[in-house]
Design a protein around this nucleic acid. Structure first.
Length: 218
DNA sequence: AGTTGGATGGTCT
DNA sequence: GACCATCCAACTG
């Protein structure tokens, strides 16, 4: 959720990935504390925002007590309020990162975005930050402070608990086992806003993904 | 439907 | 200097 009152834009987090501890070979914290990952070592509830591939930002929520580096990467959000603001922000992002692309390609991308369903406006870690206007300035923000311009709020209590499925994390090929296969990507089953479709041909199965039972105690 | 390559700059072993 | 917690366009079938 970002902004104030009638200007607020918000959405439901439908997909996350966990990065936990110094031992996690996929985590930014695997080489210890650095300038970039410093907030991961701080108190929980804080935003960890970084730049990847020179153009996309990613939003994480620090999750463990001070001294224990851990965070959840927010991978997909289903818009609730301000979807058209998000669409405009996505289009603006596209324009400002046009690079060498031809005018035709840019126009095509813009048209595609104008026609895109609301559920695809923030359906990826980079897309979330483009849609919500999140960048490095948000690094260190207290997401649990109701006064923050970027913040988390609990789901409405009347909402039934969602069905959660879990599987391996994405794009961490550099990591060794067991970290490569840890089922630490979790998503709301059946959400139309996931960063990629659910487990292949989910058709009949039900046992297509593992559930997180208990991870190592700290 | 699935694969491939380009964009782009901060970070680190 | 190599790598990257990504996305998109353009290409194959």
């Amino acid at each position: 959720m970002r902004g104030r009152d009638e200007d607020v834009i918000s959405g439901r987090i439908v997909e996350v990935e966990a990065y936990r501890g110094l031992e996690d070979g996929a985590s930014h914290a695997r080489f210890g504390r650095t300038q970039r990952n410093a907030v991961m070592f701080g108190p929980p509830g804080i935003a960890y925002v970084y730049l990847v591939y020179g153009m996309h930002h990613c939003l994480n929520v620090v999750t463990e007590v001070e001294g224990h580096p851990a965070a959840l990467l927010v991978r997909a959000i289903e818009p609730i309020a301000g979807a058209e603001w998000m669409r405009a922000a996505r289009i603006a992002w596209l324009a400002s990162h046009a690079g060498n692309r031809s005018a035709v390609a840019i126009a095509r991308g813009r048209d595609r975005l104008i026609a895109a369903p609301v559920t695809q406006l923030a359906s990826g870690p980079g897309l979330i930050c483009a849609a919500f206007g999140i960048d490095a300035r948000d690094n260190g923000t207290d997401l649990c402070d109701p006064n923050s311009m970027l913040r988390l709020e609990p789901a409405p209590s009347e909402e039934p608990p969602p069905e959660i499925a879990c599987g391996p994390r994405v794009s961490i090929g550099y990591a060794a086992e067991p970290w490569l296969s840890m089922p630490w990507r979790c998503w709301m089953k059946g959400s139309p806003a996931l960063s990629r479709p659910g487990p292949k041909a989910a058709g009949t199965g039900g046992t297509d993904s593992a559930r997180i039972e208990g991870t190592e105690p700290q």
